[in-house]
């Protein structure tokens, strides 16, 4: 089996993978970073979103081996020194979750959104930008409110 290395949440990691090993499998099964979720088999739900070289991607739809040497950030990499990231804090504050399954992907997508579009986001933009993230619980209302507030405080 080929061995790969990459940077995950600022730390150098390495491990053996098969060709077919998905990035999300590498993160969850090899590295034990189970904050990244798998919610579908069709690349549609966004529960698995992580940042690869600074861009939000669905880690269920990328081969680990193709991400060798990449710089990966997962939900576990957002909090610093025991303090939640402003976007995480905003989801807590605004009840942007119920079961929480979609939340890691939502937050990684939201942080990426702010990086690309800035801190001032209107509701239409947020809803449109979240097309790749599905939530079965909340009806999105509080997620949108959380993203708006989190963006402003980033």
């Amino acid at each position: 089996m080929p061995a790969i290395s990459m940077k995950v949440n600022g730390q150098a990691v390495c491990g053996e993978v098969e060709g077919r090993t998905l990035l999300v499998e590498f993160l969850r099964d090899k590295l034990g970073l189970t904050g990244t979720h798998v919610g579908c088999d069709t690349s549609q739900c966004g529960a698995c979103v992580v940042h690869v070289d600074g861009k939000a991607v669905k880690s269920c739809t990328a081969l680990a081996i193709a991400c060798a040497d990449a710089d990966v950030v997962t939900i576990e990499g957002l909090a610093k020194n025991g303090k939640l990231h402003p976007m995480q804090e905003a989801f807590r504050e605004h009840h942007g979750l119920q079961c929480g399954f979609c939340t890691p992907g939502m937050i990684m997508a939201a942080v990426d959104m702010v990086k690309r579009l800035g801190k001032k986001l209107d509701e239409d933009t947020i809803r449109h930008e979240l097309e790749g993230n599905i939530c079965r619980c909340t009806g999105y209302h509080n997620i949108v409110a959380a993203v708006k507030a989190g963006a402003a405080s980033m």
Partner: peptide
């Protein structure tokens, strides 16, 4: 095309 994550790859 698709959503932001799809467009990134």
């Amino acid at each position: 095309i698709g959503d932001p994550h799809v467009r990134h790859r």
